Computed example of a mutant assay.
Amino acid sequence: MRNKRKKTIGIIGGAGPMAGVLLMQKIITICQKKYKCINDFDFPKIILLSYPFAEMLKPLSFQQDEKKVAKQLKEAIDFLSTSGMDYITIACNTLHSFIDKPYRSKLIDLITETKSFLLKQNLSKVLVLCTKTTKLKGLYNFPKTKLLSPKDLQWIEELINKILSGAYSLKDRKSLENFILLNIKKDPSIDGILLGCTELSVLMDNFSRNNPKIKIIDPLEIVSNKLCKLVFTNKKENNYV
């Protein structure tokens, strides 16, 4: 591996900060376990840009400046592009609603990769846990997905804010588990849970390994596997940076 130039990965984090860290951690773990990386030079170059984005979780509010968020996202993508990153991804679901079309082709798109993954699964109905902005923008309006009610969305957003502040605990993880089980009890056709906010990925990391009866779909897991596959097959696809 030492003499071959591996492709490089750029991660746009900061929304929230720990989600970007978790994605980088997942990539490194896959490098170790699947691609047998041991020495420093075995691993790909990764740049994690933790960008302090403007408010994006309050749709239809004067506090949410969508043009500002879109401009900041362009700056982040441009920074990683000019830094020579071959593959760029965003460690946030909601941020994908602010991508300008010309920039979309530069990304390994978290939403697109998740949709592709879902279509390959034999699932009847997938409950999407996400922010109000993600729901409003229709990011996960896929076949066989079920979105939360306004009341449940409010509860999820309060939990997300708790995770963002770093004030969460195992009790919150248990609360989300109970929330999931209650929704499955109400609608037994639900056989998959999509973590449509990367803060929930932070809270529920490794949850599905401990609870195999609940099919948890984590977009960070999906995109980290995709990135590693691209890096180690060493084939650059035309629609990426």
Rank of each mutant, 00 (worst) to 15 (best):
S175Y: 08
I47Y: 15
I11T: 03
S81P: 09
Y87I: 02
I108S: 06
C37G: 02
L123W: 02
V21Q: 07
S189P: 04
K137H: 12
K186W: 01
P219N: 10
F207W: 09
Q154Y: 13
E158A: 10
F142P: 01
K174H: 14
K45Y: 15
I12Y: 11
T131A: 07
T8H: 07
M1C: 12
E66V: 01
F232I: 07
D109R: 07
N3H: 15
I12S: 03
A70I: 04
T233G: 03
R173I: 11
K236F: 08
P212T: 06
L159F: 06
N225T: 02
D40E: 09
L123N: 02
W155L: 07
A70E: 11
I216D: 09
L119F: 15
D218S: 05
S208P: 01
S105D: 13
L129Q: 01
P17A: 14
D172M: 11
C37L: 08
L194Y: 00
L73F: 05
P143L: 07
D152S: 12
H96Q: 03
L147N: 14
T112C: 02
L60N: 13
I90A: 08
T134R: 08
R173H: 05
L73D: 01
K135Q: 15
L23Y: 06
I214M: 04
L159G: 12
M18D: 09
K33N: 03
Q154G: 07
F98T: 03
I47E: 11
F232Y: 06
N39E: 01
L181S: 02
K26Y: 01
R2Y: 12
N3E: 12
E66R: 09
C37I: 10
S124G: 08
V21S: 00
D109K: 02
L80E: 03
K68C: 06
M1S: 15
S124T: 14
K106Y: 08
G13I: 00
D109S: 08
I180N: 03
K132T: 02
F142Y: 08
I28W: 12
S83R: 13
E177D: 12
K235M: 06
R173C: 03
L60E: 15
L23T: 06
R2V: 13
L139C: 00
I193F: 03
D218C: 00
I11P: 01
E75C: 15
S81D: 12
K74R: 15
G196V: 11
L110P: 03
G13S: 09
N93F: 07
T233K: 05
F142G: 01
D42R: 05
N161R: 11
P212S: 09
Q25H: 10
I90F: 05
I90W: 02
F179S: 01
K67W: 06
T112Q: 03
S105V: 14
G196S: 09
S165T: 12
G13V: 04
K101L: 15
D42N: 05
